[in-house]
Design a protein around this nucleic acid. Structure first.
Lengths: 197, 197, 197, 197
DNA sequence: AATGAATGAGAGTTCATTCAT
DNA sequence: GATGAATGAACTCTCATTCAT
C-alpha cells in the first residue's frame, strides 16, 4: 500500500463504494470479498492492494460514518436564550440535520447503525453526546427539570434510529418531515388535552 | 424426524436451549452447529435428528418468540372508560407486561429483536399490533386526535426496543421501572411547563 | 477432534505418514496439505479432523522424532571401567544405535535434522546431551583431558549429521559401518604414525 | 535486461545485497520479492529489470558464493615436504582461510551452506575438492594410509560446516581459533594417551 | 437414539510476475 | 531507468451437512 496516483485513488474509491454496498446489504460476515471486487470491477488481489483485510476495510467505513455522525450530533446542540417558537424550530432543524446525514449516507447508515457489532458502541456514543446536549438544554430551561436525561437521550436515539430504518432509508419520508414528527412527539407528549385537565 | 420418545424429547430440548444461547450470542450466521451441539453435549448428526437444518432450528426459535410477543402485545390493549389516573396505571401495567416478557426471555429477545433478518419483520408486525391498540385508545379519547398513530406506534416500539437492549437485558433496570419511564415520557412530553406557557 | 474409533486412528496414521513423506520431501513451507491428503487418500477437511493445523501436524512429527532421538542419545552413554578394546566396541555400539535410529526413520530424520527451523534447536539439544556423555566419559579417563568437550560434541554431531545425510539415508552405508568409521576417525586422529613420531 | 549505466548498476547492487540478506534470513521460499525491494528501496518491477526471476537472483548469489569457496578450498592444498610442525601450521592456515571466507560472507554462507537445495550440491562439490587435497596430502605421507579419504573429507566438511554455523556466524569464535580446534581434533584424535597404551 | 467419519463448497489471503506509461 | 497498477494461481482453513453403523 504505497504511494498512489490518481488511478489508484479511483480504484480505491470504487472498492470502498462497492464494499459499502456489500456490507450494507449483507453485513460484515456475509459480505464476500469476491462480491466487492466484482462490483468494483477488479480482481481479488486488487482489494489487498488498498486494504489490509476485510476487517480493515470495514473499520474504515465504520470510522468514517461514526466521525461524521459524531460531528453532526455535536453540531446539533441548541444554545440558550431562545423563546418557545424559536426553540421548536431549532430542534426541528437539529433533528433535520441528523436525519439528513443518515439519509444522505443510506448504505453507511445501514452498516453503522444496524449491521455491525460496532453499531452498539456507536449508538452508545451517540446517545452520550445527545445526553450532553440535552443536559445543557435542560439547564437552559427548555425541558422539565424532573426529566431523566439518560432515558431521554436513549429514547430520542431510539426513535431516530427506528424512523430512519423504516421511513427514511426506504424513502417514505423526508428528513424534515421526520424531524418535525420527532419534535412534536417529544414536545407535547400524547395525552389528549381535554382528557388531560 | 420421526416421533420421539422421552429421551429424544430431552435431547431436543437441550439442543433448542443450546441453540438459543448460541444464536443470541453470535447471531445466525456466526452461530456454529458445532458450538450448539457442544453446549448440548451431543454430536453433530444428533442435531439433524431433530432439526432439518440450521435455518429450521432458528425459525423455530424465532417463531416461538414471535408468537409469545404477539400475544403479550395483543393483551396489552387498554379498554375505554378509564379516568386519567387509571389510564396511567393501565398503560404502565401494559408496558410492564411487554418488558417482563422480554426480560424473562433474554436470549430469545436478543435473537428475535436484534439478531436476525426476521427481527425486521417481527418488529414491523409488533408495530402494527401496537398501532391497532393505539387507534382504539385514541378513539376512546385517551390521546390527542392529531397524533399520527403510525409514528406513535413506531416510536413506542423504538423506545421499548432500545431500553430493553441497554437497560433491561443487562439487568440495569426492572421491567416496572422501564414501563413507568416510558409512560412518563410519552404522556407528558419534555417541555418545561413554565417555559410552555 | 473428539473420541476416535479404530477407523479414525487408521486415517490419522495414514495422514501422519503422508505428512512425514511430504514434509521430508518439501520442507514445511513447500509441503502442501493437498499433497498430504492426496497421499493419504482423504479429502482436505479430513486433515483438520485430526490435526489443528499444518503447524500442529508438523510439530507432532518433530516432537516424536526429537523425543526418540533424545532417548537414544541418552542411552548411548558409556559407563566407566572399560578397557581400551571394550571402550572401542562400546563406542561403536553407541554410535551404531544413533545411526540405526536415524536410518530407521529416514523421513523423520530429514525433517528433524535438515528440514526445519526446529532442527537447529534439536541439534543444539542433542549436542548438549552428547557433551554430557562425553564429560562423564572423559572423567572416566577415556579421553584426553585437554579435550574441549563442547567442540568435541559439536564435531561428533556434525559428522553423524553429515554421514547420515550423504551415506545413510541414500542407503550407501549401513549404520554399523558408519559407526565404525566415526569411531575410528575420532579415536586415532589422522596423522600418519610414522610421521607422528 | 539491456546494458546498464552507472545508476542501474547501483540499483542492481542494492538489490543484490538486499536479496542476500533476505535469502539468508528466510531461505529461498520464504524470502519475498516485496521484502527485497523494500530493503533496496525500489519498486517491485525494478527487480525484474535486473533479474529474470527470483530463482535467477538466487542462483546468481549462490554462484558467487560457490565460486569463491571453491577457490579458497583449492588454494588450501598443502604441498609435500613439510615437517610435522610446519604441517600443523599449514593446516591451521588452510582451515583458517576457509573459516575466514565464510566468516567474511556470513549472509552468503547462510544461503550457500544452509538455506537451499543447492547447498547440498555445493557441499558435495566442496567435499570432493577437499578429498582431492587430502589424497595428495596423504600421498605426501602426512596422514595414515588406511584413512578413507572420502569419509575424512566429509567429516572435515561436516565439522567446518557446523562450527561455522554455531560458533563463527554468531561471532562466538574467530576463524583462527576454529581452525586450530579443528586441526587439533583431527590430528590427535580423542583418546587419552595413558589409556591408549 | 445416537455416533464416528467424512466431505463439497467456498472463504480470505499471499505472492511472483507483468504491462502500460 | 523506473513505477503505479493489476493479476493468475495457489494455499490454508471452515462449516453445514450426510452416510453407514
Amino acid at each position: 500500500m504505497r504511494k498512489q496516483g490518481v488511478i489508484g485513488k479511483e480504484s480505491r474509491l470504487r472498492l470502498l463504494e462497492a464494499a459499502t454496498q456489500e456490507f450494507a446489504l449483507n453485513g460484515f460476515y456475509q459480505a464476500k470479498i469476491s462480491s466487492i471486487v466484482a462490483r468494483a470491477g477488479v480482481t481479488q488481489p486488487a482489494f489487498y492492494l488498498y486494504f489490509e483485510s476485510k476487517e480493515a476495510a470495514f473499520a474504515e467505513l465504520i470510522d468514517g460514518f461514526r466521525n461524521g455522525l459524531i460531528q453532526v450530533v455535536r453540531d446539533s446542540h441548541i444554545e440558550a436564550g431562545k423563546n418557545r417558537d424559536d426553540l421548536k424550530e431549532a430542534v426541528v432543524e437539529s433533528l433535520g440535520q441528523i436525519y439528513r446525514y443518515l439519509g444522505e449516507n443510506p448504505a453507511l447508515t445501514r452498516i453503522g447503525l444496524y449491521q455491525s457489532a460496532e453499531s452498539v458502541r456507536i449508538k452508545a456514543e451517540i446517545a452520550g453526546l445527545m445526553e450532553q446536549n440535552l443536559i445543557a438544554e435542560q439547564q437552559a430551561g427548555y425541558y422539565r427539570h424532573d426529566l431523566d436525561t439518560v432515558f431521554f437521550a436513549e429514547a430520542l436515539l431510539a426513535i431516530v434510529e427506528r424512523l430512519t430504518l423504516i421511513k427514511l432509508l426506504p424513502g417514505h419520508e423526508t428528513p424534515s418531515k421526520l424531524a418535525r414528527i420527532t419534535q412534536d412527539l417529544f414536545f407535547y407528549g400524547i395525552l389528549d388535552t381535554k382528557h388531560r385537565e
